[in-house]
């Protein structure tokens, strides 16, 4: 017992010595349109340096409460986000939308226990099944930033539909391809498209749950929409003609990636030989290019091989 107390005292002392202020995201929202703000994240991987702050979560002050879009990668992030929203408006938070099952979309949801957290049914299923493993991997990647974070399954299922909240008319767009369920939100009032996981900007797209043909079809659907500003999941926010260009750039990468892997499989290349395969110059402006390309080889190659290698016995 005495030994336990000593151990406890040592642990407490160690905890007290930790600089508590070191871990803060320092979130400051950027106003991108009428009533509309975004917490612009980086374009790197999840790291211990950035605490997972690589997404572009946002919020809309509707006049009848705040709509929050994505919650960030950790409990701490969600809490900081909520505090930063409070500095912009006194309006209460009406609803939180989670765009897909990836960690930076839903792991901040603990900060919104008193608010409906809405997602597509496929996202809810995915978080229910994979949420704990996804959270566990985030602890490995970013460490102490995750302290106290637990996966929260969204409480409300939504489908493709149009909702009016305050002065804003929001079109909920139900697609898939980046994951099994991808929610994009078009604010028809301001012309801002929150593209969710479907559109990347200056960052190499990620494919752990991707269905490339479905993703390309979703990009076509988004490209047909009228909007003036696009909020990509990661990277620079785009306006005007540049907004549609982000969709085309994501499509270009996915088309090249899928086509290159299929052609190489047909020529008998091995998966390991594809890791250092040359990537065309036009993609070199995308961050974390080689690393995400190698992840995509891991995600996409085995199925391509399984489908194309002839069965002989």
């Amino acid at each position: 017992m005495t030994r336990l107390l000593v151990l406890l005292a040592v642990l407490l002392a160690a905890g007290a010595g930790r600089p508590a202020s070191a871990l803060t995201y320092g979130l400051t929202p950027v106003r991108i349109a009428e009533d509309t703000w975004v917490f612009v994240g980086g374009t790197d991987h999840f790291t211990r340096a950035n605490g997972g702050n690589i997404l572009n979560p946002g919020f809309i002050v509707t006049g009848d409460g705040v709509v929050v879009i994505q919650t960030g990668p950790s409990r701490r992030f969600g809490e900081e986000m909520r505090a930063a929203i409070r500095k912009v408006t006194a309006e209460p938070i009406r609803i939180v939308y989670v765009g897909n099952l990836h960690p930076d979309y839903f792991l901040g949801a603990q900060a919104f226990p008193d608010v409906p957290v809405a997602a597509l049914p496929g996202t809810i299923d995915g978080i229910r099944n994979e949420g704990a493993a996804i959270a566990g991997n985030m602890y490995r990647l970013v460490g102490d930033w995750m302290r106290g974070t637990e996966p929260v399954t969204p409480s409300h299922a939504v489908r493709g539909s149009t909702v009016v909240i305050g002065t804003h008319r929001l079109r909920l767009i139900e697609r898939h391809g980046h994951t099994a369920a991808d929610l994009a939100i078009l604010d028809e009032t301001t012309g801002v498209l929150f593209a969710g996981g479907l559109v990347f900007s200056d960052r190499t797209p990620t494919t752990p749950h991707a269905d490339i043909p479905a993703w390309l079809a979703s990009l076509d659907a988004l490209a047909g929409l009228e909007f003036t500003t696009l909020v990509p999941n990661h990277g620079r926010i785009r306006s005007g003609a540049d907004a549609h260009a982000a969709i085309a750039e994501t499509r270009d990468w996915l088309t090249w990636l899928d086509g290159t892997l299929r052609a190489a499989a047909a020529e008998g290349r091995d998966m390991a030989e594809m890791l250092d395969h040359p990537i065309p110059e036009r993609f070199h402006r995308m961050n974390v290019l080689r690393a995400e390309y190698q992840r995509s080889v891991a995600h996409l190659w085995p199925a391509i091989e399984r489908e194309t290698l002839p069965r002989i016995r």
């Binding site: 752990p208 091995d270 998966m271 390991a272 030989e273 594809m274 890791l275 250092d276 690393a291 190698q294 992840r295 080889v297 891991a298 995600h299 190659w301 085995p302």
Partner: peptide, 16 residues
């Protein structure tokens, strides 16, 4: 030796 710097799938890391 060809292998990724980061193993995305611990069940199937390519190695040549």
């Amino acid at each position: 030796v060809l292998a990724p710097a980061d193993v995305e799938n611990a069940l199937a890391m390519p190695l040549a």
